[in-house]
C-alpha cells in the first residue's frame, strides 16, 4: 500500500545540435515545465504542481528526463509539455522539443522501459556507422546494455509485432 500514488513521465529532449544537450540541468527543466503549466492552465495548474512535482532524473548525454507528479493530475502536466519550445540555462536559450516516451507508476517500470528503449536506439544507430571500428563499438554497447532476460522479452515482443502487422 502506498499513500500517495504518482505518475512518472519519461521524456526525451530533442535538440538540433546534440552538443547543446550538455547544458541540460534539473533546475532548467523544473522551471520550464512550471512556467509552461502556469501559462496553459493558469493558477489552477500552477497550484497542482506545488504537490509532489519533481524532476527525478536527468541524463544530459542522451537527453532523457524523468518527471514525477500526482497521479490525479498528470494529464494537466502532460498537456502542457508540448508547449515547451525552448529551455533556458545560464542565459542560453536552446530550442528543443520534449516528447513523452513512457508513463509509468513507478521509477522501476520507467527504468525497465528505458533500458529497452536505449537498446533500440543503439540498434537504430548501427546502420549509420561509417567504418568497421565504429560498428564494433556500437555492437559491443548493444550487447552490454541488454541483459539476457531483457533480450528474451524483446524477442517475444518482436514476434507479436510481426503478427500484428500481418493482419
Amino acid at each position: 500500500m502506498v499513500r500517495f500514488k504518482s505518475r512518472y513521465l519519461l521524456c526525451e529532449v530533442c535538440v538540433e545540435d546534440r552538443s547543446s544537450l550538455l547544458l541540460l540541468e534539473e533546475r532548467a527543466i523544473f522551471h520550464a515545465v512550471k512556467t509552461a503549466v502556469a501559462r496553459s492552465h493558469g493558477d489552477y495548474g500552477a497550484a497542482l504542481l506545488i504537490l509532489s512535482f519533481a524532476v527525478k532524473y536527468v541524463n544530459a548525454h542522451t537527453g532523457i528526463i524523468l518527471i514525477r507528479c500526482r497521479k490525479s493530475h498528470y494529464r494537466i502536466l502532460w498537456s502542457a509539455l508540448p508547449f515547451i519550445s525552448c529551455l533556458e540555462n545560464r542565459g542560453q536559450k536552446v530550442q528543443c522539443l520534449i516528447s513523452c516516451l513512457h508513463v509509468g507508476g513507478t521509477i522501476r517500470t520507467c527504468q525497465k522501459f528505458l533500458v529497452k528503449y536505449s537498446t533500440q536506439q543503439l540498434h537504430r544507430m548501427l546502420p549509420h556507422c561509417k567504418n568497421e571500428a565504429e560498428r564494433d563499438e556500437v555492437r559491443r554497447a548493444v550487447l552490454s546494455c541488454s541483459l539476457e532476460k531483457e533480450r528474451d522479452v524483446e524477442e517475444e515482443e518482436e514476434v507479436e509485432e510481426d503478427d500484428w502487422e500481418d493482419e
Partner: peptide, 8 residues
C-alpha cells in the same frame, strides 16, 4: 523542432 510526439 515544431513536431511533437504522437502520444503527446
Amino acid at each position: 523542432l515544431e513536431l511533437r510526439g504522437p502520444y503527446d
